[in-house]
Design a protein around this nucleic acid. Structure first.
Length: 548
RNA sequence: GAGCUCGUAGCUCAGUAGGUAGAGCAACGCCCUUUUAAGGCGUGGGUCCUGGGUUCGAGCCCCAGCGAGCUCACCA
């Protein structure tokens, strides 16, 4: 528990202070305090009141809070109480609280919880303050608080000791309050539209509904291996088969993958399904939903993220093919353009990629020279930023080409090319639709175009926010898709989908035409709070254990 | 998994050139009855992330490890 001798001796010192407090007739750990108002309530009610009005009406309040600042001045003193993320000053003077009360005041430390009863007034500097008439001790901080001006700044400590972060960094607290607002707004959005909130298994025997590696666990009594779910999708569609036409679930998914600013192994996913809707309907709902949530929690659709101003009320829709053509780097104009090839023929894609990769490398070298010759920091930054983008793109393209030569399905290559060329540039809200069938084992094919499915993903801030499609409801086709995924699994893709025969059986009972969608809630919260890292919107992100 | 950066008092951070560790806050004692990053005087507090190495001498240089951040890889 103790990090140092300093902490141990402080703890001992505080214990003896607690004993002193008990000698004053106060309980060391009392079990309640009858507050008349919360701190935010006092501020809301009297925050604007004039000094004379307070004096005339003599408003008496009793509030509780944690001491975040304390300034003693001989026979009087101040303290700042914090509760529910807001602060209120108290003024304690010997002649108002008496010998015992003032003795208690002198035994208080930063971080202690106290109750203060008295009347409101304004100090000389105009600050709303409680003139305390009775102090009640509530609980002691036995450890030292972080530095009061900077708060807890160490990122690692903020994640590991979130309990300290939350009361010392109020901005951090605001993020999580807003996160709760996002969840509330999402529920309201779907509740108002007649969706039923459901809960489906977190522990599954066949982890399906996504392409990801699962966590494994074990049930002792049944001696059965289980996997933490990577998605609720297949269960939710079973419910639609069962006649729950509109369902949604907000819960955790678990994916056994690396961590990054956009990935935490457990993350919160919203999925919803609507019978008789297709992916065009879902596009409409998506735009309405994001706009609704933004307005509910921020009062506006405009948000600021990573240096960009993003308007979550203004959407662009592009097919994947259109997007690749639109975002194809102009630096490659002379070596070939994607609008001249069919996206369904492996050879044509390879012929486009080969010279493009070479050219990109040349361009990067040329940009390197320009960086050396550049005058001015701005120019250097601009050129090197572009160079970073292109060099990353070139590496990803090379991987796509290599995979394609190794017999990767064409649709998979197109999808990976999309991720290389387009995804990082989707800062403003964008819907990308019409995905290759090979990367969409659960989506319904486009009528008359068996290579593509009725699926879209939506992006903002440069990352994927969610994924939606017209659900494949033909059990024969679904079984075939699963078999294709098994082939990919054999080819070495351990994230390819597994066979789920019970799901196929469910489809055989008849799934109505249905649209379904998943939304990364953490990422939406990131956008709405301007948080660059997913860890800043997850209360307790996964961390390696500290060594002893 | 790779690269870069970081790790010094409870917290926020300095630390010159390799010469044996500092400030502010917090703590402790004293003074102060409208302060607010209160103030004044004084005191205590360190496994410089860990383990090796180089050196007469290492917080600083080298190697390995641990943890973190960022970037990349991985990641419907």
């Amino acid at each position: 528990m103790f990090d140092s001798e300093f902490e141990r001796s402080l703890f001992d010192l505080r214990k003896s202070k607690l004993e002193e407090i008990e000698k004053l007739g106060q309980a060391a750990y009392p079990n309640q305090f009858p507050a008349s108002h919360s701190v935010p309530a006092v501020r809301a009610r009297w925050g604007q009141s004039q000094a004379e009005d307070l004096e005339a009406s003599r408003v008496t309040v009793a509030v509780a809070g944690r001491i975040m600042a304390i300034r003693a001045q001989g026979k009087a003193g101040f303290a700042t109480l914090q509760q529910n993320g807001e602060r209120l000053q108290i003024y304690v003077r010997l002649d108002a609280v008496g010998e015992q009360g003032f003795a208690l005041y002198k035994l208080l430390d930063l971080g202690d919880h106290i109750g203060a009863s008295g009347y409101l007034f304004r100090t000389r500097t105009g600050e709303l303050t409680i003139h305390v008439e009775r102090l009640t001790f509530l609980s002691k901080a036995m450890l030292a608080l972080p530095e009061k001006f900077h708060g807890l700044a160490d990122v690692e400590l903020r994640y590991r000791q979130r309990y300290v972060d939350l009361f010392t960094n109020l901005d951090s607290r605001k993020v999580f309050v807003k996160r709760a607002g996002v969840l509330k707004a999402l529920r309201r959005f779907f509740d108002e539209r007649g969706y039923l909130e459901v809960e489906t298994p977190m522990m599954q025997q066949i982890p399906g509904g996504a392409a990801a590696r699962p966590f494994k666990t074990h049930h002792n009594a049944l001696d059965m291996d289980l996997f933490l779910r990577i998605a609720p999708e297949l269960y939710l569609k079973r419910l639609v088969v069962g006649g729950l036409d509109r369902v949604y679930e907000i819960n955790r998914n678990f994916r056994n993958e690396g961590v990054s600013t956009q990935h935490n192994p457990e993350f919160t996913m919203l999925e919803f399904y609507q019978a008789y809707a297709n992916y065009y309907d879902l596009m409409q709902i998506t735009e309405e939903m994001i706009e609704f949530v933004a307005r509910q929690v921020n009062g506006t659709t405009v948000t600021h993220f990573n240096g960009h101003e993003i308007d979550l009320g203004k959407w662009t829709r592009l097919t994947m093919r259109e997007a690749i053509i639109k975002y194809w780097p102009p630096e490659l104009a002379s070596t070939g353009k994607p609008n001249s090839i069919r996206f369904t023929v492996r050879g044509e894609l390879q012929e486009l990629l080969e010279p493009s990769i070479v050219t990109l490398k040349d361009v990067c070298d040329e940009l390197n020279n320009q960086i050396l010759a550049a005058c001015g920091e701005d120019e250097t930054l601009r050129i090197s930023a572009r160079q970073d983008q292109l060099s990353k793109m070139s590496n990803m393209m090379a991987a796509v080409l290599e995979d394609s030569i190794a017999a990767a399905p064409i649709g998979k290559s197109v999808y990976n090319l999309f991720e290389a060329v387009v995804e990082p540039f989707l800062i403003q809200p964008t819907i990308i639709y019409d995905y290759p069938v090979e990367v969409s084992p659960l989506s319904k094919a486009k009528p008359g175009d068996p290579a593509h499915v009725e699926r879209f993903e939506f992006f903002a801030g440069g990352f994927e926010l969610g994924n939606a499609f017209s659900e494949l409801n033909d059990p024969v086709e679904q079984e075939k898709r699963f078999r294709q995924q098994l082939a990919e699994r054999d080819r070495g893709d351990d994230e390819a989908h597994q066979m789920d025969e019970d799901y196929v059986r469910a489809l055989a009972y008849g799934l109505p035409p249905t649209g379904g969608e998943g939304l990364g809630v953490d990422r939406l919260v990131m956008l709405l709070t301007g948080s660059k890292s997913i860890r800043d919107v997850i209360l307790f992100p996964l961390m390696r254990p500290e060594k002893q």
